[in-house]
């Protein structure tokens, strides 16, 4: 699915990712943990194609394509989805309209006809219900005056409606209350299948109780310093980054 080799990234001359390797296969869930400022969000932006990042070295292969050559929207329409750490507010654009536009952009890219209004309404309703998002909410402007947790849930709604192949969740758990955390995790688990993959960025092992990862990676100063299975998250919880990085 995704194969990152020797990735070096800088922004405004500042080196942030310094030789990162990561390989994610179909059907796998990988967790990425690491201290503040270690480069997790940067990695998610580089994967989704945000500009201003300079790729100094390395390659990223996405389903046989050179990911770095694709535009942001091409990557998205090829099934790459980023649930933002800080989702954007778009004033004047109704959430449901945004969802419809996103779905139809993808369909257009894939050479399919637009989803008809009824089918869309049904899909949105069922997905919103699963995530305990009210229909009132969907009539409001996208993310405008949403609470922190509501924005995160909105990201997961978009994800489940677009059913991506490769989803990156950047600290989706931060800001969610206990119930929302469970609901969101269930949403993710429901989407999991043998064809798609997830990269879950988090600071808290608790999320990983709900979304069981196949692999856990620890990133520090722009490099993956340790990889393991779920037990690594537990070990980290006990020892902290400092000690783990040293034993790496």
């Amino acid at each position: 699915m995704l194969e990152i080799k020797n990735l070096h990234v800088s922004i405004e001359e500042k080196k942030i990712i310094k030789g990162l390797d990561l390989s994610i296969n179909k059907g796998e869930v990988h967790a990425l943990m690491g201290p503040n400022g270690s480069g997790k969000s940067t990695l998610s932006y580089v994967l989704s194609g945000k500009d201003k990042y300079e790729i100094n070295d390395g390659t990223i292969d996405y389903n046989g394509k050179n990911l770095l050559e694709l535009d942001v929207d091409e990557r998205a329409n090829e099934g790459l989805f980023l649930a933002f750490q800080y989702p954007m507010e778009i004033p004047g654009v109704q959430t449901s309209f945004f969802l419809k536009t996103a779905i139809n952009s993808k369909r257009k890219y894939l050479g399919q006809s637009e989803m008809d209004a009824l089918e869309f309404a049904k899909l949105m309703k069922s997905k919103a219900e699963e995530l305990n998002i009210s229909t009132e909410m969907l009539k409001r402007d996208l993310n405008v005056n949403y609470s922190g947790g509501e924005k995160k849930k909105q990201e997961i709604l978009q994800m489940s409606m677009l059913s991506p192949k490769m989803a990156i969740l950047d600290e989706t758990d931060s800001g969610l209350d206990i119930d929302a955390l469970r609901i969101v995790s269930e949403g993710v688990n429901k989407l999991r299948n043998s064809d798609n993959s997830f990269l879950v960025i988090t600071h808290y092992q608790r999320l990983l109780n709900y979304i069981k990862p196949d692999f856990v990676h620890i990133i520090a100063d722009g490099k993956i310093v340790k990889s393991g299975d779920y037990s690594l998250a537990l070990e980290l919880e006990e020892k902290g980054y400092e000690e783990i990085s040293q034993t790496a």
């Binding site: 945000k50 989702p87 778009i90 993808k106 677009l162």
Partner: peptide, 29 residues
């Protein structure tokens, strides 16, 4: 806002559609 544009494009809108969407939101009133 570049970040708004990026957000829309990450959801599959091409850059022109993204601008159109954001500007229409701006003009909604």
């Amino acid at each position: 806002n570049e970040d708004q544009l990026f957000y829309c494009q990450q959801r599959g809108l091409n850059s022109e559609d993204a601008v159109g969407l954001i500007v229409n939101g701006f003009c909604k009133e």
